[in-house]
Design a binder for these strands. Sequence first.
DNA 1: ATTTAATCGAGACGGTACGTCGCGTCTTTTG
DNA 2: CAAAAGACGCGACGTACCGTCTCGATTAAAT
Lengths: 206, 206, 206, 206
Amino acid sequence: MAQNPSSAPDTSRRSERSRRAIYDAALALVAEVGYPKTTIEGIASRAGVGKQTIYRWWSSKADVLLEAFLDLSDQAAEAAGQKPYTIPDTGDLAADLKNVLRATVDELGDPAFEAPSRALAAEGVVNEELGRRFVAQLLEPQLQLYVDRLRAAQETGEVRPGIDPRIALELFVSPLAQRWLQYTGPITYEYTDTLVDYALHGLAPR
Amino acid sequence: MAQNPSSAPDTSRRSERSRRAIYDAALALVAEVGYPKTTIEGIASRAGVGKQTIYRWWSSKADVLLEAFLDLSDQAAEAAGQKPYTIPDTGDLAADLKNVLRATVDELGDPAFEAPSRALAAEGVVNEELGRRFVAQLLEPQLQLYVDRLRAAQETGEVRPGIDPRIALELFVSPLAQRWLQYTGPITYEYTDTLVDYALHGLAPR
Amino acid sequence: MAQNPSSAPDTSRRSERSRRAIYDAALALVAEVGYPKTTIEGIASRAGVGKQTIYRWWSSKADVLLEAFLDLSDQAAEAAGQKPYTIPDTGDLAADLKNVLRATVDELGDPAFEAPSRALAAEGVVNEELGRRFVAQLLEPQLQLYVDRLRAAQETGEVRPGIDPRIALELFVSPLAQRWLQYTGPITYEYTDTLVDYALHGLAPR
Amino acid sequence: MAQNPSSAPDTSRRSERSRRAIYDAALALVAEVGYPKTTIEGIASRAGVGKQTIYRWWSSKADVLLEAFLDLSDQAAEAAGQKPYTIPDTGDLAADLKNVLRATVDELGDPAFEAPSRALAAEGVVNEELGRRFVAQLLEPQLQLYVDRLRAAQETGEVRPGIDPRIALELFVSPLAQRWLQYTGPITYEYTDTLVDYALHGLAPR
DNA sequence: ATTTAATCGAGACGGTACGTCGCGTCTTTTG
DNA sequence: CAAAAGACGCGACGTACCGTCTCGATTAAAT
């Protein structure tokens, strides 16, 4: 009953304990010493785990961190109840968008999220495969909420019918993203409010 | 007038030959094998230079690459004459912006620029000091061109007077930047044209 | 029962294969290019071994060479049977000593032994700790053979009873050692024969 | 009026000031940090001298140290008057030799001499060319004094006529040298006295 | 309840690159 | 033109991690 050597580890025997310890160690190290100084050996030692246990289940440091961060996000979402699964619809699109963006501003400043998400974003810029997974698993689901809210606004006539919501949302989301990623400007409530106003009414005189 | 101990190499004795060779080697290696596999040893060996000569003048791999890339940009700008120092003003703001953004789309696809600028952008996400230098020395000067063009448009009445041009430009520039940085969507002329239209006229019905 | 932090590699997991390869490489390099041009990197590369494997088990180049040379000596001794474990006793002390010293003269000229033993001797002159180990593990056991032979000679009356054998042996051994170490004179059978004669009968007339 | 490039510096223009400073720095450094950690750069910097000034006049670190040490010995000899230029002849050979050896024991323990002479001896073991110069310029002149004293003793009948003085002196000088060089035993007045007794009267009963 | 086979902690191994030190050469400026 | 200063190409240092590879010792599924 020989087995294909060096492949397909048996998931049913996997140690849950080790997995959690590795997530915790990875996130803690990235927060404490930064992503570049976080090493597989460091994670293993801090998690009280053999290196092979990491290499058996993940293919790279970025991979570990991505999973750890996804796990963290899931936990956070679960803990916070249903809050982020939809953008509130009070009938006032501008107000609703400003609220959500203000919450995002707060989140971007939270140190617990900042270190790992910056690290993953940076890695994703240069590593397309990881970048696409980062987007597909974390970013896109959140952007989809804006698409939904904008669609609803189109039905009430708050947004022109011809507008593509997937592009439209970038008018106020991407500027915030770029300021955060590249330090191209300060990030304040006033700024995001302005973005929403500009995006909704345009730059040209009416 | 004593000196900072054990430091401050004499700039006047610096070898111009080595500096050029290091720039060339760094850019070539990043393009050929990617940023993470580009090593100081590799740059030194390819440039026919001692490692110490790199460490004497730069503090890190990212530092070398940033200077090399700045130098490359300067050269490119010089070679191209005065073209990129201002955004053309034909009186039609939308057309002018679409033209410039289409040129940017082409540039973002140019492999000679893509590898190093992606690498620097990624490094800058995680290394604030470098990120700010990247922005100040490369990005901001280019964004300033948009500010100038938008100001001109305000004077002709194409743009509302109350609009802040520095923020306004982000409505069409940041979405393109984010798609390029994070692979959040395809990058086409049609896309950038749409961005300009949305940004100028807003999402809300008029 | 805690451990000294970050140290004490596990001897039982040590690779015998690597140890042998390192001994061989070290001795070969010292013989071929000389001690100063023998480098840890050179030994590692020639032995097909990582540098860390050397640093894990030895503290310096001299340390490696000393162990390699001890190993070589043990092997040589084993290969040669019991020959060098005792100085023959034919009843004629002078003849016996002359024979052993002639053999030593031959050995000192053997290139396989000369390079490493000179290197170790030189290092020992300047590095007391290594010097003492060199003496304790290599030199002293051989000198002890002379002590034994001289003791036997005292019992047969060939040597005066009051003589201290440990000092006595230096009268003929040290001159040879010094000529070899410091190039203070030629090394021949005639010379060592003379030393034995002078030492046994003294310089003063009888 | 071109000159053969890179050869034959002009001795008449040599800076005496620099030479002295280099000697002093070399001896001080060897005494303070040991020979291996003494570097050309260190000597130059301590002497307030350019590296080239050292390379112009000496071929190696050992070379500098040998000259510095010879200079030191000459100075010491001059300062001490005529003392070491001959071994006293009181008519009692044994007493005279014991006295000189006791003085040597003292000298070997003097830290000012020990560091550089050990370093040079070690270098000489492994570097035949330097070793021979060390012997010719420092050791042999001193051994010649013993030759002279032993010749005188042969004329008075204290030493047998057939004895070769150059070999005879090694019976008591070499053991002391070896104990000092290789740490093969303690160095005391008693020890050197014993050596003289054994050497003069031999080991065999009379 | 026992067997049994894969996972686990541990860490030695062959490597690559790091950032530093010193070598010996070369060049520039000063006395 | 020697001398100080020190940048340069180079090579080795000793260290940190990489990813692979054994080793017993659990440990959970299949007997």
